[in-house]
Write a protein that binds this DNA or RNA. Structure first.
Lengths: 153, 153
DNA sequence: GATGTTCCATGTATAGTTGCAAGTGTTGCC
DNA sequence: GGCAACACTTGCAACTATACATGGAACATC
């Protein structure tokens, strides 16, 4: 615990920098969509079309709440309702082209910004950063990514 | 750009993991305070007491909006108004003990979680992670931390 | 076919954020 | 002293999120 304390300090620093990157990458999307709404789009983007109930569960929203939130998302043209082939009482939600583009745009901007930062390092430095980050990512892997939804990312 | 691309991928992974940490660390605070409110507390914590107008500017809020947001923050006991010694028309905002404790608690939890992750690595691995992260932090340093406010961190 | 369950939508209500505009008190300047 | 600029607050209004309860259609089971 003693040795990892300075590494933890460095990590806190990096987390600030990375959060800046994330915040910037999301900020343009937040001009057209709210954070809770963007959350939904991200879930749809990674998990594919889902039922209303399942989707509501993923973002920890109430059914009733979620139904109306989805009204707005659909009205904005980011997602669409369709009837499920399996059961007529189920409503399937899927991203529209606009919705997918919005999420992709955010991811790409984030990737570009990170690449730009790394480009300031020499190739050997980049390699050591990559190796170290992979180590960290593996060590952090046990942690669920579920809570990301709190921030809508 | 070729070499940094895989490093960028690793960074994206890490940013997800770190965001998970951040989200978890903030989530308990969000049970008693909203995200925009917590934002204000973070600014106060790092910058010290500020005028209403300056504080509103820092979180990109309207004066009128901010005045009432502050009503709620003050009502919650997280910050307090006081008259400025310089001018009686200025209102100085400062954190209460509760407000400071709330922010500190989040920071400490974040630090603990990161330390816990790093503890899974061997000491040499920790050292290499620390060195790599410092490299990254330095490379990212040009980027302003201002945009963090978008996420309220 | 009657019953109960699942899934979604709607009714109703509360709380927070946000913006524009108007108002109050304070300060500085002529 | 009078007047404009400044700092903050309040009135008014719209929008979003969230929750609990209710309603209604589709399905499963018996």
């Amino acid at each position: 615990m003693r040795d990892s304390s300075s590494a933890a300090d460095a990590t806190l620093l990096v987390s600030r920098a990375l959060l800046g990157v994330v915040a910037r990458s999301v900020s343009t999307a937040l001009e057209v969509v709210t954070l809770p709404q963007f959350r939904v789009l991200v879930v749809l983007s990674s998990a594919g079309p889902m039922r209303m109930g399942a989707l509501a569960g993923r973002v920890h929203a109430n059914q009733s709440t979620f139904s109306r939130s989805m009204d707005k998302i659909v009205a904005g043209g980011w997602a669409q309702r369709s009837s499920s082939p399996g059961s007529r009482r189920e409503v399937l939600i899927s991203l529209t082209a606009s919705g997918r583009a919005l999420v992709d745009e955010v991811t790409e901007r984030r990737h570009r910004e990170i690449a730009a930062i790394l480009d300031r390092l020499t190739p050997p430095e980049q390699e050591s950063v990559r190796a170290a980050l992979e180590l960290f990512a593996i060590a952090a892997d046990e942690y669920s990514v579920e809570e990301l939804l709190v921030l809508g990312i």
